[in-house]
Design a protein around this nucleic acid. Structure first.
Length: 553
RNA sequence: AGGGGUAUCGCCAAGCGGUAAGGCAGCAGGUUUUGAUCCUGCCAUUCGGUGGUUCGAAUCCAUCUACCCCUGCCA
């Protein structure tokens, strides 16, 4: 599909049909993260889906924190998640919601279920509960506490809330069917006693509802019409419906599932991403190697590129693994059109133009973009002493070489054609300098009677600005780092995932770049001034993605 | 006979009984002061397998196979 077409998928078709049939006057979705980690690229898929549907069908999308397990959650994550959703370009409906804001209402629904004989307080130990659940092929057995009277259950549940019992002493269970083939329906726990300080409700509660209970009822409370989640929740749908139908709420939200995103050479498990951070394998959640939204941001990905990526991969119910190349395509596609060009020499090799007058400076005006004139131009001073990249010179080049070699000519991008006349080496035989001559009649035009085979980038020796450049490769060396039963994903960490290049030189126009400014360093790739470490006069650039390399053979 | 899902090009993915879209990657050319971009062409006689229904099947039926998910007081 072209970038201008609106993507369609089975969920959009369902929404469209429901709206057309008058099942709902308007569509209401929600994005419901648990604040127990940072959002990653897989969440981006869900965000684009939920907010995208609301936007395109004239509905609403809530941002709701599913904060029912305070022990793993924190305000830091809440703040980061909001920042990431906004940065991606989406605005939620009204104020941020919290499942914890519904604790009182949820408690009421639990009491209602007890009153209807549909929930009971179980006082078995966790081990006994597990044993009683049976297994995949054998039915479970009823708890000895399953037939407590409504009065007794009401009393016990009230005392659970009042803090009369120790953590884990009792649990509230939905009374459904211990013989169900669906394990989720074997009297699922819906409330547990947990004396944990909650980031939103403080110490007001010592019992907390379980996801399975809180989620559908929160959806109903908010009037959500289409509750979209990932495939692993499919067997929870009967419970979702059971709760919505057995509680006195008008709204009947429905749950729909889609396949979560898998990207090769990376992991999208909050638990494992947290492990990478906690154990110091990366510097932080926003380390540019992380597949987190904040990591991608710091790496230089644009919100538009991530949204475009989500459009490209589609939404289905079949499991798959998307190639990283798809993400890289999305960012190259965006940055090629929007990023100003600049020159940066990563590993400088000095070039002295013997034909250039000592001290002479010529200010060359070079367009910032080869196709988009609106980006303007920058000025690059041309001097007698320059730097080119070590990789752009070879004494014994392979066939098809298009860069500099002894006795041959090459074009300096935006400048003159030069010829290498002499190679200067140190005592150890290392090339330390090239003596070249320039053809003064080649600025803005091709030389007469011969054609120059290549173009290389350069910077003036003294006027250029020293900078740090961080080169990144994939974080893992294996396509499915967490897909091996016999090997831990950490053992696949790529030792070369980060290379810090000190002593690189950028053209003077970039001396005072702002954090997050993006450029294409010509012939190298797209780079982004680091969000945290770029300082005036001392830029730090992160490699976002290299240029596609058509150099085959 | 546990239950629930999914199978269309190397990857993603349209297709919804009328004779296999598109994107990524790849390959071959062209343009080019970025080995980039851009442009052109090529890239599934076949839709997990096998039967069947039909004038006609990726689409319907049967059966088989492979893979994913489910036994937290996590979400």
């Amino acid at each position: 599909m072209s970038t201008t077409e609106k993507p369609t998928n089975f969920l959009r078709q369902i929404v469209e049909a429901d709206l057309a049939a008058g099942k709902h006057a308007t569509v209401a979705t929600r994005f419901p993260p648990e604040p127990n980690g940072y959002l990653h690229v897989g969440h981006a898929k869900s965000i684009c889906l939920n907010f995208g549907i609301a936007r395109d069908f004239g509905g609403t999308c809530n941002l709701r924190f599913d904060d029912t397990n305070p022990e793993k959650e924190s305000q830091e994550y809440i703040d980061a998640i909001q920042r990431d959703v906004n940065w991606l370009g989406f605005a939620w409906n009204g104020e941020v919601r919290y499942a914890s804001a519904y604790f009182e209402a949820l408690y009421g629904f639990a009491v209602e279920l007890i009153g209807k004989g549909l929930a009971y307080v179980d006082s078995q130990s966790p081990e006994d509960m597990r044993k009683g659940r049976g297994n995949l092929t054998e039915p479970g057995t009823n708890s000895p506490f399953r037939d407590r009277t409504v009065e007794e259950n009401l009393d016990l549940f009230a005392r659970m809330r009042a803090g009369e019992f120790a953590d884990g002493a009792h649990v509230l269970r939905a009374k459904i069917d211990m013989a169900s083939a669906n394990m989720v329906m074997r009297d699922p726990a819906i409330y547990r006693i947990r004396r944990a300080h909650h980031h939103q409700t403080g110490d007001a509660w010592c019992i907390y509802p379980m996801y399975d209970f809180a989620h559908p009822l929160s959806d109903a409370l908010e009037g959500i019409t289409h509750s979209i989640c990932t495939l692993e929740f499919e067997e929870h749908r009967p419970l979702y419906d059971w709760l919505v139908d057995n509680v006195s709420l008008e709204a009947k939200p429905r749950q729909y599932e889609f396949a979560r995103l898998n990207l090769n050479y990376t992991i999208t498990s909050k638990r494992k991403l947290k492990q990478l951070v906690d154990e110091g394998h990366v510097t932080a959640w926003d380390d540019p190697r992380m597949p987190t939204i904040s990591g991608l941001r710091r790496r230089g990905y644009t919100p538009a590129s991530i949204r475009h990526f989500c459009d490209l991969i589609g939404v289905t119910r079949s499991d798959g693994v998307v190639d990283m190349g798809m993400l890289e395509f999305a960012i190259r596609d965006d940055l090629d059109k929007t990023a100003p060009r600049a020159m940066c020499v990563l590993r400088p090799l000095k070039v002295t133009l013997t034909t250039w007058a000592e001290g002479e400076v010529q200010e060359l005006t070079v367009p910032r973009h080869p196709k988009d004139e609106s980006l303007g131009a920058r000025v690059i001073p041309m001097t007698r002493e320059l730097f080119i990249d070590q990789d752009d010179f070879s004494e014994a080049p392979p066939a098809g070489w298009k860069r500099l070699e002894p006795g041959q000519e090459v074009r300096l991008r935006g400048s003159y054609v030069i010829r290498c006349d002499e190679v200067v080496k140190d005592a150890a035989g290392n090339i330390v300098e090239l003596k070249c001559s320039h053809d003064a009649n080649t600025l803005g035009k091709n030389p007469e009677g011969r054609k120059v085979k290549g173009v290389i980038h350069w910077v003036p020796a003294n006027e250029s600005v020293p900078c740090e450049v961080r080169l990144y490769e994939r974080l893992f060396t294996d396509p499915t780092p967490d897909g091996h039963d016999d090997r831990d994903f950490l053992s696949f960490i790529n030792p070369k995932s980060l290379t810090v290049v000190q002593g690189a030189r950028v053209e003077p126009a970039l001396a005072n770049v702002q954090p997050e400014e993006r450029f294409q360093f010509e012939r190298e790739g797209y780079f982004c001034a680091d969000l945290r470490d770029t300082k005036p006069g001392s830029p730090v650039f992160n490699l976002t993605v290299t240029l596609r390399d058509g150099f085959t053979k």
